[in-house]
C-alpha cells in the first residue's frame, strides 16, 4: 500500500508543492474577497479559466508558437514567459473587476441581501464559462510548449524539473509580493480596515468602492498568475476546467481559514500535498473522499479553519 509513497516520495512531494502553490494563488482570489465582503466570489473559478486562455493566446497567437515548434530559450524564453504572466494576470484582473461591477456593485448599492449577490455571482460565472464554450466550440485547447521541461538533476530518486522549480519559486514570490502589498501599502491597510470593520473604515474616510474593486483586482491578479503556472505545467485548458480548480482552491481557502491570506498559503500547500499522497497511497479514486474527510475533521476541531479568524491582523 505504501510502496509507491516510499518509492516515489520526493517526486510526489515536489508535484504536490507545485500543485499546492497554484492552489494558494487561486484561493487568494476567494479569500481576499471573502475577507472584505464576507461573500464567496463564485466567479473566481471562471476568472481562473479566462486567465488560462490569456496565457495560451499570448504564446500561440502573439508569439506564434505551435504544438510542433521548439521551446524558447534564453532572452526570448524570459520575454514570452513574462508576457504570458502579465497577460494572464491582466485578463484575470480585468475579468475580476468586471465581475465586481456586474454582479456585486449595483446590488450592494441597492442594499440587497447576500443571497442575491450569491446568485448573481453564480450567474456571471455561468455566463463566463458558457461564453468561452461558444468561443472554443466546446473543444479543449492545448498550449504550445514554451518552457522546455528539462530534468535539471535527480535528488533522492526524484527528477527536479525546470517547470516545477519555476512554478514553486515564482509562485512563492508572487504570493510574497501580494501579502506584503496587503500588509504594508496604504491601500492594503484600507483593505484590512474594511475587512475588520466596514462602518468604522468608512467613517475614517476609506473609499469603500475603491477598496472593494482593488480587492477583486488583487484576487484576480493572484488567480491570473495561478492560471499562468497551471498552463506552464499542464499545457491544457478547456471552458470547464474552472470548476475543479475552483472547488479545490475554495477547499484550500476554507481549510486554511477563509478570509485569511496566510491561511490560503498553508491551506493550498496542505491540500496539494494531501491530494498527491492520498492518490498514491489509496488510489486516485480516493482523492476527493480523503480530501473532504480531512476537511470535515479539520472543521470539526477548528471551525474557522487552520488559521481562521484568530489571526485578525493578517486578515485581508
Amino acid at each position: 500500500m505504501f510502496e509507491v509513497l516510499i518509492d516515489q516520495f520526493w517526486s510526489l512531494t515536489l508535484a504536490g508543492i507545485s500543485l499546492g502553490f497554484i492552489y494558494v494563488l487561486v484561493s487568494l482570489g476567494y479569500t481576499m474577497v471573502y475577507g472584505v465582503l464576507r461573500m464567496i466570489n463564485f466567479a473566481n473559478s471562471e476568472i481562473f479559466m479566462w486567465g488560462t486562455f490569456g496565457t495560451i493566446i499570448t504564446s500561440r497567437d502573439i508569439f506564434g508558437y505551435t504544438q510542433t515548434s521548439a521551446p524558447a530559450t534564453g532572452g526570448k524564453l524570459a520575454l514570452v514567459l513574462i508576457s504570458q504572466l502579465i497577460m494572464s494576470m491582466a485578463v484575470a484582473g480585468l475579468t475580476a473587476i468586471f465581475v465586481e461591477y456586474v454582479a456585486y456593485r449595483r446590488l450592494r448599492a441597492k442594499g440587497t441581501n447576500r443571497l442575491a449577490t450569491l446568485i448573481s455571482a453564480i450567474g456571471i460565472s455561468i455566463v463566463l464559462s458558457e461564453l468561452m464554450r461558444l468561443l472554443t466550440d466546446s473543444r479543449p485547447v492545448g498550449s504550445p510548449r514554451v518552457l522546455e521541461k528539462i530534468i535539471l538533476t535527480e535528488v533522492w530518486g526524484a527528477n527536479i524539473r525546470l517547470d516545477t522549480i519555476v512554478t514553486i519559486f515564482a509562485a512563492a514570490l508572487i504570493y510574497f509580493l501580494l501579502e506584503r502589498f496587503v500588509q504594508l501599502s496604504r491601500m492594503g491597510k484600507a483593505i484590512r480596515a474594511v475587512s475588520m470593520n466596514e462602518d468604522a473604515a468608512k467613517l475614517m474616510g476609506v473609499n469603500l468602492n475603491r477598496v472593494i474593486t482593488t480587492t477583486f483586482l488583487v484576487g484576480g491578479l493572484a488567480t491570473g498568475a495561478a492560471a499562468f503556472f497551471y498552463i506552464t505545467v499542464f499545457e491544457y485548458s478547456k471552458f470547464n476546467i474552472g470548476f475543479t480548480m475552483g472547488m479545490a482552491a475554495f477547499t484550500a481557502a476554507v481549510l486554511g481559514g477563509i478570509g485569511n491570506i496566510r491561511g490560503a498559503f498553508y491551506g493550498g500547500l496542505f491540500l496539494g500535498l494531501l491530494e498527491v499522497y492520498a492518490s498514491a497511497v489509496l488510489g486516485t479514486q480516493w482523492k476527493a473522499v480523503t480530501v473532504f474527510i480531512v476537511l470535515v475533521l479539520v472543521l470539526l476541531f477548528k471551525p474557522n479553519g487552520l488559521f481562521g479568524e484568530a489571526v485578525q491582523t493578517t486578515r485581508a
Partner: peptide, 20 residues
C-alpha cells in the same frame, strides 16, 4: 492500475505508481 476522474489534470500520483 489506477482510476483517475476525467476532470483531473494532475497525473503525478498515477505516474509515480507506473514507475514503481
Amino acid at each position: 492500475g489506477d482510476s483517475v476522474i476525467n476532470t483531473a489534470t494532475d497525473y503525478a500520483p498515477t505516474i509515480a505508481k507506473i514507475k514503481t
